[in-house]
Design a protein around this nucleic acid. Structure first.
Lengths: 235, 235
DNA sequence: ACCTGAACACCGTTCAAGT
DNA sequence: ACCTGAACACCGTTCAAGT
C-alpha cells in the first residue's frame, strides 16, 4: 500500500464555509438533495461531520448558504446601460436569462431556491437577494416606473420565473434516479409505460405533449410579460 | 387513572391506506413536512411504524399518495356547460380557482405538489392527474383548439399556476415556525429586522412591497393568460 | 483554534416472529 | 391477515476532550 492509500487524507486545504458550500453544491448537483448529509459531506471533505458545525450553523443554515451563493451570483454583470429609454427591458431580459442559466446549471438546487422562505416576507424567490432586488427596483424607478408599478413588476417577474423555471429544472434534474427499474423495457410503449387506454385525448396528443418547447415558450412568454409590465409604467 | 388513560388506545377503526394518507395530511398541515415521520405517524394512528408498510410502500410512496389525493380532487365538479362558445374559458377559470383553493387549504403540501416528479415527463404540476389532464385537453380540443394549441395551453396554464400559487402558499405556510426567537422585538424596525441601510430603494418601497395584492394579481394575470390562450386557438 | 470520540435521540426499512 | 420486536444502517446535533 502506498502512502496516500494508507493515510487516505489527500491533503485538504483546510476547512472553510466557502469550501463546505461548494462541496455541498457538488453533491446535490451530482446525486440529488437526498444524498446530502452532514456526515457524508464531512467525509467527502476529509473531516468528521462535527467539524462542519464550526462554519455552518446546522443543516438548515447550510441549505440557506447554498441558495444564497447561487442567488447572489445574479448581481451586476455590468449589465446594460440604464441610460436609454428602454434600458429596463434589456435589464429584465438579461436578468431572466441569468436566472434561467442558474436553474439549468443546478436543476436539483432550484427547488430549494423556489421553496425556501426568504429573509423577509416581501422577498420572493428566485429574486431573494437584497442586492438583486435593489438593482431591480432602482432600475425600474429610475426609468419612470411609479413605486407601486415597480413593486408589482417585481412580483409578476418573480412569479413568471418560478412558473417557467421550476418545471424546466424539474425535468432536467429528474433522471438522476440510480438507474433501477429500467430493466424490462416493453419494446412498444410510447416513451412512458403509462396505461392510457381510458384517456383518448391524452393518447392522441401525446406527441404534442412530449415536445420540448421550453426555450421558445420562455422567450415568448417573457416578451409578453415585458409588454404587460411596460403598460403599467406611468411615464 | 381512567380506562382510556390507562390503555391510551382510544379505539382506532383499523388501518387503511386512506386513513394513513388522511392523518399524514393533517400532520403536515398542522406542523409542516419535517414533522412527518413514519414512526410518529404510526404512533398517532395507535400503531407501530412498521404496520404502515402493509399499506404504503415506504415514505416516498406516502408522499406521492398525499399529492395524488389532493390533485385528484380537481376532477369534475359538474363544472361548466362545455356547449357554449366560450365554455373553455369558464372551465379554466373554475380549474384555476380550484387549484388555488387547494393551495390555500394545504400551503405546506403545495411545495410537494409543485416539485415532485409526475408519473410521465409530459405531465406538469399541479395538473398531474390523468383525469384532470384528459378533461383539460378534451374541453379545449372540443372547442376548436388545434392539438398543438391545446398542448401549449396546458403548459402555459401549469406554469401560471405554479408561479402564482407556490409563492402564495409559501407565505401562508411560512409562519409555522415554533414561535422561538420572537422574543426581544425591536419596538421600531418595520415588520422585519433586516438591515436596509445600504438599500435605499428597497427601504423606500417597503410599504408597496409589503402590500398583499395576491388576490387581485392572480385574477388579472389569469384573465391576461386566458386572452393569450384565446389568441392561439384556430377556430 | 481547530478537530474528534462518544453519546443522545431520533430516522426508514427489513424480517422473522407472534396472535 | 394483520401487527410487533428486534435489529440494521443510517441521521443531526451537543459537548467534553484532545492536540
Amino acid at each position: 500500500m502506498t502512502d496516500t492509500a494508507a493515510t487516505d487524507q489527500v491533503f485538504r486545504p483546510r476547512l472553510s464555509r466557502e469550501r463546505i458550500v461548494h462541496e455541498a453544491l457538488r453533491v446535490v448537483d451530482d446525486e440529488g438533495l437526498q444524498a446530502l448529509s452532514m456526515r457524508r459531506l464531512g467525509s467527502l471533505l476529509g473531516v468528521e461531520a462535527m467539524s462542519l458545525y464550526r462554519y455552518v450553523d446546522g443543516r438548515e443554515d447550510l441549505l440557506e448558504a447554498m441558495v444564497e451563493h447561487l442567488t447572489d451570483g445574479l448581481r451586476l454583470a455590468p449589465h446594460t446601460p440604464v441610460g436609454t429609454e428602454d434600458g429596463w427591458q434589456a435589464y429584465l431580459q438579461w436578468l431572466a436569462h441569468e436566472v434561467r442559466r442558474v436553474a439549468h446549471a443546478h436543476p436539483q438546487v432550484f427547488p430549494l431556491i423556489a421553496t425556501r422562505h426568504p429573509a423577509a416576507p416581501w422577498l420572493r424567490p428566485p429574486l431573494r437577494s437584497l442586492d438583486v432586488v435593489e438593482d431591480f427596483l432602482s432600475v425600474l424607478t429610475r426609468q419612470g416606473f411609479g413605486d407601486e408599478a415597480a413593486a408589482a413588476a417585481y412580483r409578476a417577474f418573480s412569479s413568471f420565473l418560478i412558473g417557467h423555471l421550476l418545471l424546466e429544472a424539474s425535468q432536467l434534474g429528474g433522471s438522476v434516479v440510480p438507474d433501477e427499474a429500467l430493466d424490462e423495457g416493453d419494446p412498444n410503449a410510447p416513451s412512458s409505460a403509462l396505461e392510457l387506454a381510458d384517456y383518448p385525448t391524452i393518447r392522441r396528443l401525446e406527441p404534442e405533449l412530449s415536445q420540448d418547447r421550453s426555450g421558445e415558450e420562455f422567450e415568448s412568454a417573457l416578451e409578453e410579460l415585458l409588454d404587460r409590465i411596460a403598460r403599467t409604467r406611468r411615464s
